[in-house]
Amino acid sequence: MHLDDIDLALLRALNKDGRLPAAELAAQANVSRGTVYARLERLRRAGVIRNFSIDVDHQQLGLHVTALVLVSAGQFRWREMSGELAALPEVQYAGYLTGGFDIVLLVRVRDTETLRAFVLEKLQGIPGVRSTQTLTVVEEVVDRPSIVPGE
């Protein structure tokens, strides 16, 4: 799908504040409210906008430990593992990799004991997981909800 300057302006505005009313979006993109509604619907139907969500402070939710967990797994099970990883509520993000590890997970938990239980019991209990390496995040520097070209 080709995105023009109006599409990108709308996405940039929503990326900064997803609750902007159509009138404000129209003013920022220099278009009518009708154009805003039509463009947003087109972007949603095309899958560019997948959903509308909230940005929460994980610390305020009691999730004080953030970790990246690198997983070495049997390649014969990678399709099946997608569903198993998605079912783990501690996993915020999972992606398949090239290189020395097969999967990276962004995990958020209450404390180090919960992280230990997650890695040693839940994750390593999944068939096909050969080994893991856990990197604990000591400070989050950049945490963008998404990246829109031109920002």
Rank of each mutant, 00 (worst) to 15 (best):
I54C: 00
R44M: 07
F118C: 02
V138H: 07
G83N: 11
D143E: 13
D55S: 14
M1H: 13
H64C: 00
H2S: 11
P127T: 00
A117V: 07
P89I: 05
R116Y: 09
Q59K: 10
N15F: 00
A87I: 03
S72M: 06
D143V: 09
D5Y: 00
V69E: 06
V119C: 05
V36G: 08
A22M: 11
D17S: 10
R19S: 14
T35Q: 14
Q59R: 12
Q75F: 04
G100S: 12
S72G: 04
E90G: 02
R45W: 03
M81V: 03
T98E: 04
L40M: 12
E84F: 00
L11C: 08
G95C: 05
Y93H: 10
D143G: 05
A23F: 07
I147F: 13
V91H: 04
R45P: 00
R130F: 04
D5M: 04
T136C: 00
R33T: 15
N51E: 15
R44C: 02
L43A: 10
D57S: 13
D7Q: 08
A22P: 01
K16W: 02
L20Q: 14
G125I: 08
L123C: 02
F101N: 07
V36Y: 06
V48S: 06
E24T: 14
S32Y: 04
Q60I: 05
V65G: 01
F101A: 06
G150L: 12
L97M: 15
L10I: 14
T35P: 11
V148T: 09
P145R: 11
D143Q: 13
A29E: 11
V148W: 08
L61Y: 08
Q124L: 11
G74M: 05
V137H: 04
S32F: 03
R110Q: 12
V31N: 09
Y37K: 04
E90M: 04
A67W: 05
F52K: 06
M81Y: 03
Q75K: 08
G47M: 11
Y96N: 02
Q92N: 07
E140D: 12
R33I: 14
E80N: 04
S32H: 02
R12H: 06
E121V: 06
V137D: 07
A73F: 04
R110W: 00
F76S: 13
L14S: 10
M1T: 14
D111Q: 01
A46E: 15
A29Q: 10
D5E: 15
K16E: 15
S131A: 15
L25R: 06
T134E: 01
A46M: 07
G95H: 09
R110A: 13
V119F: 03
L10T: 08
L120H: 09
R50K: 13
N30M: 07
E121Q: 12
S82Q: 12
A9S: 15
